[in-house]
Design a protein around this nucleic acid. Structure first.
Lengths: 196, 196
DNA sequence: GTCTATAGATGGATAGAC
DNA sequence: GTCTATCCATCTATAGAC
């Protein structure tokens, strides 16, 4: 007797988040109306407010959930087995996310401007954690003599920008397989840090 | 008797474009109102329509003018003196633009979604020209044995994404000079294509 | 849980006075 | 050339019927 038969609460909520993610990624947060999201789900605009306090929260939670999942996965992937392998795992993990969660990845770095001040601070904290995780791999590798570069901060930002750019050209079912794309980017990253 | 004294036509027009560029870059095209732009300039919303047919045209012309200027400058900078030098010039030129025209660079790859269909096609054409110019340098270099990489298209996109990412962290008057930033990125690019 | 209806605010763009 | 005033569309969010 867990749920009412005929109830859609467990279906509509996730559907709203999925629709918001798709539409925000496609047209941008500010250009999407609650009516559009509702239409995509198949309900009226008013019904959305049963599942979220508003549009801003919808955006914030999409970004937060994605970044937390990404952080956890990167943390798992780059377990302690040497800077070269850790860098490899980090890159493949991020690139792989473009295959699995394309829109979420896109939102997380395109819609920062549209977060309220306090939500921005929270999301920025998660992003910073993510950047720091990569930078720590680089610094460790340099100290151990696996990598060679001048400025760890700039290289970190260059790597992350390069990864974020995957969304611009990558299309599912294109000429390159997931594994090929991951390998090309991992290779570029190794070159950038002069991995031995 | 060239111009009416007291007239501001030659001042207000450019001021509107500058204000639009700043505000669009800061808050996003869709989140900025004509009233905000007018307030920044010091006129009323209605006055803006004396200088542009509308908001969409304002965005389009900002992007077009920037891309045309960038294309011309890149074309001049990378005159025919070998792939390694051409790549160098291309990278330094693009990075340098983040110092001179920060907001314009940002707009040109952040606001594609908000262009009308026909404006998008025109801007996309200019972007494609820019990408092709870089890819040609890479392909030439590979053929001549200066560069070594697998996939010229992916490397091109990776390089452009890396360059575009400068805006995320770069601030005027930061710890790195213009020349240092240009050199770091040129160095990263040479590593990515295994320049000899 | 979802609907219709609507409040209340704000948007782009235009008309006409000065 | 700029202003005030305004039209009309659309927006987020809420109230209340079912």
């Amino acid at each position: 007797m867990a749920r009412k038969s005929g109830s859609r609460a467990d279906v509509t909520g996730p559907a709203i988040r999925r629709a918001a993610e798709t539409l925000f990624a496609k047209h941008g947060y500010a250009a999407v109306s609650m009516r559009q999201i509702a239409a995509e789900v198949g309900v009226r605009a008013g019904a959305i407010y049963l599942y979220t306090p508003g549009k801003q929260t919808l955006l914030f939670e999409l970004m937060r959930d994605h970044l937390e999942a990404l952080l956890e996965e990167v943390g798992r992937a780059s377990a302690d087995d040497g800077p070269v392998n850790e860098l490899n795992a980090f890159i493949r993990c991020h690139v792989g996310y473009h295959f699995d969660r394309r829109d979420a990845v896109f939102l997380a770095y395109m819609e920062l401007r549209n977060l309220s001040a306090e939500n921005f601070a929270l999301i920025e904290g998660l992003r910073r954690k993510y950047e720091d995780q990569l930078e720590r791999i680089l610094v460790d590798g340099k100290r151990e003599g696996c990598f060679a570069f001048e400025d760890s901060r700039v290289v970190t930002m260059a790597l992350i920008a390069m990864l974020a750019g995957v969304h611009v050209w990558f299309r599912d079912g294109g000429r390159l397989s997931r594994n090929e794309v991951e390998e090309i980017y991992a290779d570029l990253a190794r070159r950038m840090v002069a991995a031995t």
